[in-house]
Design a protein around this nucleic acid. Structure first.
Lengths: 262, 262
DNA sequence: CCCAATTTGTTCGTATGTATC
DNA sequence: AGATACATACGAACAAATTGG
């Protein structure tokens, strides 16, 4: 049985299948370097040949090689360092970069609060259940420390904002303990959207006494259920927590619009 | 005296750090152009100033400007065209590019079939229900045409492969009719992972008579439920469909490993 | 169909900044 | 502190692609 196929995965197929148009030199080199990374199984920390050698290897000029390396850097595949022993080093894309890039894609689509919570209602219970299997006392401590941030009335708008962010961070911490990288990423991306969406930012600056208290109750109950290892209960609590959070967000959004009309 | 801090380590925030330390000229220009696009509300089709003008505007060299534009191109924000009237045109990132970039992030994580299906079991029922509200007769026709592709015994390995791809395309078509862009994207990304993961590719080349027939039954029932507008039934069928598909995939994976050991 | 204008794409030479020893 | 190795940036020239006459 063939185990490792030479035509492995994720090769930037994207749009044009190469047979059509003459591809630009830069893009050819980008793909060539990508293949080199894949085929040689290069790990983070490994260094690519330096510019000088790449120039020779691909018979291209400095500028072209630089553009290719820049492309790889933007894609989060390499990091460029100056100085002796410097060069292009293979890295794993950071979650932040992945989210930025995906954010560019969704920028054109108009996301609503309901859209995001439709996802969260489905995913957060799953990550919570998944995280339950891996979380330890240190993890619980982190969760409780996060709750502390918003377990009191905010003094000013700035602290109120910090509390809203921390409320989302609670779920980010939970997701950290899931071993399903894709699930965790998608969950955390939803959280990031909630942090960045303009409509949400407008909502967060308003006072909202009810939401905070109820949210904490859900989260405390969640921690307890996780400690008890009660998978069904964990999911049930998170479902209710999300449904309640969505309700609050939508109500606040409607209230804001109402105020705007007056 | 200003001194460069040595601990400029890999926090790699990915997004706009405030005017902090010495950033590279290229990245400054990238952000400046990004802001220009945002602030002016530039839409796809709108043209940025040409290289010549950008060189003047930012007092940078041609190479630097080109690197900045290349960065924006890789991020899927602009498209570069040569010739008279050419230049950098604002575009919306294609779904394919977004998936490629996200694929680079997940490349380092080791995804399992179970991980992906954990997502699919949660998301596919939601997209199906969401799509139900928008799909029309043309959409149903597309779904039925897709089923035709694998509604018979494959003659050879190549057709078998095409059938596996079409089975996934069925769900891609469903997702097209959802108006929740994020939900649809995440669903289709799962489908893409199933198309590309090496372990899945190995599975698809094997004959698997049972899965095909049962899958079609689910999908035909799904179409019927969608036509009837029965939201709960749509979700229920899709849940079962996904659970069954996962079961089959895991069984085939186990069988393959068994064969591999022998 | 070719020609010419326009604009990006690529090359070379050189200089500067930066990190390591 | 100085030498070295490397990326980063500049500028001028040339090549290729696209559009319109």
């Amino acid at each position: 049985m063939q185990k490792t196929e030479p035509r492995s995965v994720s090769l930037e197929s994207g749009d044009v299948p190469a047979a059509r148009r003459l591809r630009k030199r830069t893009d050819e080199i980008v793909d060539a370097i990508k293949r080199t990374i894949m085929d040689h199984g290069l790990e983070p920390g490994d260094r690519l040949p330096q510019e000088k050698d790449l120039i020779e290897q691909y018979s291209a000029s400095k500028g072209t090689i630089r553009e290719a390396l820049k492309s790889l850097e933007v894609q989060g595949l390499v990091r460029l360092r100056t100085g002796p022993g410097g060069g292009a080093f293979v890295v794993h894309m950071s979650e932040g970069r992945a989210m930025s890039l995906l954010g560019n894609y969704l920028f054109s689509k108009k996301m609503t609060i309901a859209d995001i919570y439709e996802l969260r209602k489905a995913l957060e219970p799953l990550v919570a259940a998944s995280a339950m299997d891996n979380i330890d006392e240190a993890g619980f401590a982190r969760l409780e420390a996060t709750i502390e941030i918003y377990d009191h009335q905010a003094r000013d708008a700035e602290e109120r904002w910090a509390q809203r962010m921390a409320e989302l961070d609670f779920h980010a911490v939970v997701a950290e303990y899931s071993d399903n990288a894709l699930l965790a990423f998608q969950c955390r991306f939803c959280q990031r959207l909630l942090k960045e969406l303009a409509v949400c930012r407008d909502i967060y600056v308003q006072p909202q006494p009810v939401m905070r208290q109820r949210g904490i109750e859900y989260q405390r109950a969640l921690i307890e259920a996780m400690r008890a290892g009660d998978r069904d209960k964990v999911q049930q609590i998170m479902r209710e927590h999300m449904a309640h959070a969505e309700e609050q967000m939508l109500a606040l959004e409607a209230e804001m619009e109402q105020r705007f009309i007056e």
